[in-house]
């Protein structure tokens, strides 16, 4: 499948079968779209010769794979809900402000160790494993977090395995001890900050109803200064209240953060939710952000915006592209009492309980449902140019908005497609400068 799109005065062709990206002039774009193009015969013949040459090289209209993912039942990653409590009360929190629609509690060391043992046992021949500390606010259970890391490293080493640890934190408890520990032990750290003070404080409030911006940004700046060249993301959320979110991304960049992610909110709160009528504004905002992103990069003042980062040359294998995140099969969430769920967004959703780290088994029916769900079972993805870059959307979002893990949520799709086009344009501009 070929996707011909324009960005300002630039024209591109993305070939889904081969994964190749090409630039072309307007007349060629019109011909490729099957639209009338007023061209002299000689020029038209030259364009058609170019198209035929790309076809022969396998870079246009290339056949697409229909290879189903190999169903590995070896566990790869656990999300440890080490705290179902939080010191913030963010209005849009999918996790019910940390409590996950249940009691506020933290995970015991016994449960955390049982989860590590479960991962060791269920990971089979895998050598590279992952544990993500999540909440709620994980640093509210910092002692257990630290002891779990030590135990995980010890148990993995015994088996010739390695665990990559990640923590997602709101930054409120990032003191010197936490900064030193996370910088030493975490492969990646995700730090929640929504951008401008007024935007952040409008939704991310403390238990006492006060804005958290001033405390959080000071802690996160201190953390990032100590982080060196290790991975981190300052990760924010935008809502219907700040559709001018490019200003928030640029605010974060101007605050000294060079690895940034800003995600559309997932909520059913009427005043915050992203709706279809917001899409034109959001798409224009992504373009405005891309323009500034390119300008800063050209001046040597660039930063990494997650959604404008794309690897078309050394990206993941097809197996990965069609099997996506692995939730419910290769990746599971563990809540404080040890129960298992397909992922953090299904936590404490009773019909999706898949067992317990203490039972030592995974519900075979639910696991099969998630293991067989892939790009080729997603409804509507077959005609989408972004399918091998997206893998069919988030199962949890699909389920919560559409009632089915295999039915993508159209608003998420629209934003994904726009971001992919922006990322391709950013890549093309970078390549152009390098030449």
């Amino acid at each position: 499948m070929r996707h011909v799109f324009s960005y300002r005065d630039k024209h591109y062709i993305y070939d889904t079968g081969s994964g190749a990206l090409h630039a072309c002039d307007e007349a060629t774009a019109r011909i490729l779209r099957g639209e009338p193009a007023d061209l002299p015969d000689a020029e038209r013949e030259a364009v058609e010769a170019d198209i035929e040459a790309l076809r022969r090289a396998g870079l246009l209209d290339a056949p697409e794979t229909d290879a189903r993912p190999v169903k590995s039942h070896e566990l790869k990653a656990l999300c440890l809900h080490i705290s179902h409590d939080c010191n913030l009360r963010c209005r849009y929190c999918f996790a019910d402000e940390g409590a996950y629609h249940s009691v506020r509690e933290v995970m015991s060391l016994e449960t955390a160790k049982a989860a590590v043992d479960f991962l060791m046992r269920e990971s089979g021949s895998r050598k590279v494993l992952e544990i993500d500390f999540f909440g709620g606010e994980p640093l509210m259970n910092f002692d257990v977090l630290k002891e779990t890391v030590a135990y995980g490293k010890q148990e993995a080493a015994k088996r010739g395995k390695k665990i990559l640890f990640t923590t997602t934190t709101n930054g409120l408890l990032l003191d010197d001890d936490a900064i030193a520990f996370l910088n030493e032990e975490m492969e990646n750290v995700v730090l929640s900050l929504d951008g401008r003070k007024e935007v952040h404080d409008a939704v991310r409030k403390t238990v006492n109803g006060k804005g958290s911006f001033d405390a959080v940004i000071a802690h996160i700046k201190k953390f990032v200064r100590a982080r060196g060249d290790k991975h981190y993301y300052v990760r924010g959320t935008f809502t219907a209240k700040n559709l001018d979110f490019a200003k928030d991304v640029l605010f974060l960049a101007d605050s000294g953060f060079d690895s940034i992610s800003l995600e559309p909110v997932v909520t059913d709160l009427a005043d915050l939710a992203i709706r279809e009528e917001h899409l034109p504004r959001i798409e224009a905002e992504y373009e405005a952000l891309a323009d500034e992103y390119i300008r800063r990069e050209a001046e040597g003042k660039g930063f990494l915006f997650f959604h404008f980062s794309i690897d078309l040359e050394g990206g993941p294998c097809l197996q990965k592209r069609v099997s996506a995140c692995g939730a419910g099969n290769e990746y599971l969430s563990v809540v404080p009492n040890g129960d298992l769920y397909p992922c953090h967004q299904f936590a404490n959703d009773a019909p999706f309980r898949m067992g317990s780290v203490f039972e030592g088994t995974i519900d075979p029916v639910l696991r099969e449902k998630f293991a067989t769900s892939c790009l080729f079972t997603r409804k509507g993805c077959e005609d989408c140019f972004a399918k091998f870059l997206c893998s069919g959307g988030c199962s949890a979002n699909n389920y919560h908005f559409m009632g089915d893990i295999d039915t993508p949520y159209p608003i998420s799709c629209a934003m994904m497609k726009k971001r992919v086009e922006c990322a391709m344009h950013v890549l093309a501009e970078r390549k152009s400068r390098e030449k």
Binding site: A20, L21, H22, A23, C24, V47, S72, E313, C317, Q319
Partner: peptide, 20 residues
């Protein structure tokens, strides 16, 4: 005129990459 911007080095394989 068409100019190729990027093409994959090679496109079904190992599980070493990150898991959202």
């Amino acid at each position: 005129m068409i100019k190729t911007i990027a093409k994959p080095t090679e496109r079904v394989t190992c599980g070493e990459c990150r898991s959202c």
